[in-house]
């Protein structure tokens, strides 16, 4: 079991309260991809959100990612003409808290599953 994450910052607490399922899933998927040393870009993110039934438009997917970037929960790096997403230490803290709160259910990434098979 991971060690307990204590939140002392009220701002972070308020930010977490405003995150939706889409944000949560993006944080989890980009974490898993990074763990597997797989690049995870906005297009992969859109496909996964679509597959999970969260959204059907790329604009929404982009806005989820941009929000997470604005909150410093993810970094977006231009790599070989792709905008790849990486979780930040703040994002990691936020994700760990969300996971423990059981507010949302984790879902697998279709992109990562396809790569596995």
């Amino acid at each position: 079991m991971a060690r307990a994450v204590e939140l002392t910052d009220d701002l972070l607490q308020d930010q977490l309260n405003r995150l939706g399922e889409g944000h949560f899933l993006i944080l989890s998927w980009c974490t898993l991809c990074e763990d597997k040393t797989v690049k995870y870009n906005i297009t992969n993110c859109f496909d996964d959100l679509k597959s999970a039934g969260i959204t059907r438009t790329k604009q929404t997917a982009v806005s989820f990612v941009e929000t997470l970037w604005a909150l410093c929960f993810v970094d977006i790096r231009d790599e070989r003409n792709r905008k790849n997403i990486y979780i930040t230490p703040h994002g990691a803290k936020a994700l760990a808290h969300l996971v423990k709160s059981n507010r949302y259910k984790l879902k697998s990434s279709s992109y990562l599953e396809d790569l596995k098979s």
């Binding site: 991971a2 989890s28 930040t88 996971v99």
Partner: peptide
């Protein structure tokens, strides 16, 4: 079927937290 089953089953929270540690973000 395996993909569908794993999708339905969802991910393990511990597994995700371990991943965060492995990539040294937590």
């Amino acid at each position: 079927e395996a993909k569908r089953a794993s999708k339905e089953k969802g991910l393990d929270a511990d597994e995700l937290l371990q991943a965060l540690k492995r990539i040294k973000k937590l």
